[in-house]
Design a protein around this nucleic acid. Sequence first.
DNA 1: CATATTTCTTAAGATAGCTTAAGAAGAATA
DNA 2: TATTCTTCTTAAGCTATCTTAAGAAATATG
Lengths: 191, 191
Amino acid sequence: MMKHKLKAYFDKYVNLSDDELELIFEKLEVVQFNKKDFLLTAGAVCNSKYFILEGLIRVYEITSNGNETITQFGVEHWWITNLDSFINKTPSRLSIQALEKTVVFAVTKTNLDYLYRAVPKLERAFRIITENMLIAIQRKDEVYMKKTSKERYFNLVKSIPNFAQRVPQYMIASYLNITPEYLSEIRKNNS
Amino acid sequence: MMKHKLKAYFDKYVNLSDDELELIFEKLEVVQFNKKDFLLTAGAVCNSKYFILEGLIRVYEITSNGNETITQFGVEHWWITNLDSFINKTPSRLSIQALEKTVVFAVTKTNLDYLYRAVPKLERAFRIITENMLIAIQRKDEVYMKKTSKERYFNLVKSIPNFAQRVPQYMIASYLNITPEYLSEIRKNNS
DNA sequence: CATATTTCTTAAGATAGCTTAAGAAGAATA
DNA sequence: TATTCTTCTTAAGCTATCTTAAGAAATATG
């Protein structure tokens, strides 16, 4: 069950004893969100990190001209939060919303800070996890900063299986920074 | 001197005893680079992290069409490395080069891994430093993905004092993903 | 099912930013 | 100080992508 998944996940980074795992597990909460539920609404401080067990979420912002602009998608086994708001306790400009029925582990900042002290290995695990996130975002930047819309689109849909089926096209367009109209055109000319 | 600077820096994140500081200091190397020297050349594995004490560096890549494209600048008190290459020991596509006479602390992967075990607090420090880097890159993304060239330019020059004086314009253009010609035009129309 | 809502497509005209080419200005070196 | 190399500017024409507007298709809801 849940505890198993947690162990399997952390085993990739550190070796936790049963006691340590138990300690961690006690401070996590399993939360279920329905489609369109919010994990975080803009304006609030982001008090938790979420580990996605199943489902799909998006992180987005309402820009000054009133448009939604998606900055991130999260799928199974990704940690999602607004790190800036989480760490600095500043109100979030971003909202986080489930796009499908989604189940997560949620851990509050208080609990996580407690756990870092109680289970020092967790500090190592998150050091590594955060490094991996940094590498991932740097790879994304290479694609998004230097490639055309078409290249970005095909890069994305081939990197997450089924993605184009699970997410409306206009959201993909928003994430890729292109208009839905232009994305429609790209697809027409390439299929 | 050098040890002092190191202490002042880490004090922002954790409290190190003199012994711990000494241990860390022994595993660092102070290296000086002249203008145009390479800290890392494309094709090699990136074996060190560099902490910039003074100077200015750029991280760049030669794209498939033979152009240089700058992905990052590094100034005083920033850690610079190709994290992907550093962690996964893969050959780097990026090069890292000094743009001014630059002095750094260099720490090799072997030494850093040793230090994480010898000084667990360092693990915490780097967990936090890495989180801060992640926040910084996410902020950059907001500006670079969603704003016009003009906005990106003015955002950059006001965020690093003197930047426009220290770095040739064509390099700024490269970093901002615009042509030098167009940057020239932007500047003409706004001064 | 029928209607309402959400999502996707098409197409015409507009624009930001690119390409190419050339020369001007500035900085470095003999 | 002259010469060479590096960096910046100007301008004309071009292309990727956006805007606007409308209707078509798909999906959700009464």
